[in-house]
């Protein structure tokens, strides 16, 4: 299991910039690499998670960090 190599703090971003910034971060990564995203529960978390799955990436962890903040670990898919 590879370790997380990229981190993205989206706790101050709102939809749809959360998805845009996630997409841009994943684009620069190699297939199989892991991206950790911190974001707020609700629309941000739901939409980023849905986008990742739709675009062929994998979600390997999804956990609450306290408050409204969540941590999502995304495995970059083969190609976008």
């Amino acid at each position: 299991m590879p370790s997380v190599t990229e981190h993205l703090d989206l706790t101050t971003d709102v939809c749809p910039m959360t998805v845009v910034r996630t997409r841009l971060a994943l684009e620069d990564m190699a297939a199989g690499a892991l991206l950790e995203v911190r974001l707020l529960e609700g629309e941000s978390l739901d939409n980023v998670a849905a986008y990742c799955l739709e675009d062929g990436h994998g979600i390997v962890a999804r956990e609450a960090l306290g408050g409204r903040t969540w941590r999502l670990v995304v495995r970059r898919g083969d190609d976008d």
Partner: peptide, 14 residues
């Protein structure tokens, strides 16, 4: 990122 966000969201553009 902000200016082109609505293009970046489209699978066909990105």
């Amino acid at each position: 990122m902000e200016r082109y966000s609505r293009h970046l969201l489209l699978r066909e553009v990105g």
